[in-house]
Amino acid sequence: MKKSVFLGALTLAGLAAGTAMAQDSSTLAAVKDRGTLRCGVNPGTPGFAAPDASGEFVGFDVDVCRAVAAAVLGDSEAVEYTPLTSAVRFTALASGEVDLLARNTTWTFTRDVDLKNTFVGVNYYDGQGFMVPKDLGVSSARELSGATVCIETGTTTELNLADYFRVNNMEYEPVPVESFTEAQTQFLAGACDVYTTDASALAASRASFENPEGYVVLPEIISKEPLGPLVRHGDDNWGDIVRWSLNAMIAAEEYGVTSANAAELANGTDNPEINRLLGVEGELGAMLGLENDWALNIITQVGNYGESFEKNIGENTPVGLARGLNAQWTEGGLIYSPPFR
């Protein structure tokens, strides 16, 4: 009996210590003290992250930044955006220049383990594709031997391209570029026959062309590109905050909680999962070192996952992406949040 009581006391002490550690997160403290979240984003990929007409960053990835700011600071607009090229994005995160990277970044073994990043989830399941001018007269990537290819350096697409051409015994001439914008410019200027990157970015690029009908995205998808936000290794509480901010948007869509009805549902429902998500029951916020309405702030200010998808990159936007793999698991997709309990 004494041993049981002693172990129980240790368990309670451990829980208390865990709560204290959660609230001592160095990144969380820095963000709260600063009053803004520093978020690294793509300099300009329409639909995902790009300045609007007034110079404000908007997009599907930008909404991840906004969600974290809403959770931590109660204000989705309290974000300082840092446009980062592929070449410098990991350095900016590691150095502390940004608190979070939400920049269409593929989760890979080396980026996770060797570069000491913590990927906190996937907000878009993608794959690498190819785009060519229609008048090039090709209908398959297998017909591209000898082509010049615009490729962004420092990316998984660069490595995937080399693997694909090697496996298929084809030759190509790389045309290195530093950014999405430069790739578009070079491709449209005829500096390369082919532009290759994530299929979602190809759709975004093509939608911005003056003559999108003059370009074709080939059918081959040659890689898995799970894209998602990431933080530095070593601050587990901050990783939890970003992870569960994304999960809150995903779970909200699954349970029908939207920016329009979240405040009303926060009065209490018959669904315990919704109640915990919105802070009506339990103390999930305190476990993160946040207020209990952290997820409610995300949903009311940013929207759920589906709302963000449809607003920024869905079929009724210029980017025009179908949900596909990014549908909820209940609709045959891969989007799935662990339980809020």
Results as ranks from 00 to 15, higher is better:
Ser95Phe: 02
Thr105Leu: 06
Glu97Met: 09
Arg142Thr: 13
Ala92Thr: 02
Thr118Cys: 03
Gly137Leu: 10
Arg111Thr: 10
Gly137Ile: 09
Tyr164Trp: 14
Leu115Val: 07
Asp99Ser: 09
Gly137Val: 10
Glu77Leu: 12
Thr110Ala: 14
Phe119Ile: 08
Met131Lys: 06
Thr148Pro: 01
Thr110Trp: 11
Leu144Cys: 06
Gly137Met: 11
Asn104His: 13
Tyr125Phe: 15
Arg89Gln: 11
Asp135Cys: 08
Asn104Val: 12
Ala141Val: 09
Phe130Asp: 01
Leu100Glu: 08
Val120Phe: 06
Glu143Tyr: 00
Phe130Val: 05
Val122Phe: 04
Thr157Ala: 13
Phe109Thr: 13
Glu158Phe: 09
Met131Tyr: 04
Phe130Asn: 05
Thr82His: 11
Leu159Lys: 11
Ser86Thr: 12
Thr106Val: 15
Arg142Gly: 07
Ser140Phe: 07
Gly129Pro: 04
Tyr125Arg: 05
Asp126Leu: 07
Pro83Ala: 08
Thr157Asn: 13
Lys116Arg: 14
Phe165Val: 01
Val167Gln: 12
Tyr81Met: 11
Leu161Val: 05
Met131Arg: 03
Asp112Asn: 14
Thr156Arg: 04
Trp107Phe: 15
Arg89Phe: 02
Thr157Asp: 12
Glu77Val: 03
Phe119Thr: 08
Asp126Asn: 10
Lys134Glu: 15
Tyr125Ser: 03
Glu152Asn: 11
Ser145Pro: 04
Asn123Tyr: 13
Arg142Ser: 13
Arg89Leu: 00
Gly154Cys: 03
Glu97Ala: 13
Gly154Ile: 06
Tyr164Lys: 03
Thr108Asn: 08
Thr82Tyr: 11
Gly129Tyr: 06
Tyr124Lys: 00
Thr85Gln: 14
Val149Ile: 15
Leu100Tyr: 07
Gly129His: 02
Asp126Pro: 02
Glu143Thr: 04
Gly146Glu: 05
Leu161Trp: 03
Leu100His: 08
Ala162Ile: 11
Thr157Ser: 14
Phe119Leu: 07
Val132Leu: 08
Thr105Phe: 03
Thr148Leu: 00
Gly127Tyr: 08
Glu80Ala: 07
Asn160Val: 12
Pro133Phe: 01
Ser145Tyr: 01
Leu136Ala: 10
Thr105His: 10
Glu158Met: 11
Thr108Cys: 02
Thr85His: 10
Ser76Met: 03
Ala162His: 09
Ser140Trp: 09
Asp99Leu: 07
Ala162Ser: 10
Asp114Met: 13
Phe165His: 02
Val132Lys: 07
Arg142Asn: 09
Ser145Met: 02
Glu97Asp: 14
Thr118Glu: 14
Thr108Gly: 03
Glu158Val: 05
Gly96Lys: 08
Asn123Ala: 03
Asp135Ser: 15
Thr153Tyr: 04
Val167His: 00
Thr156Gly: 02
Glu80Gln: 12
Trp107Ile: 13
Arg111Glu: 15
Gly121His: 06
Gly146Trp: 06
Leu93Asn: 00
Phe109Gln: 12
Thr82Trp: 02
Ala87Met: 12
Val98Cys: 06
Ala87Pro: 01
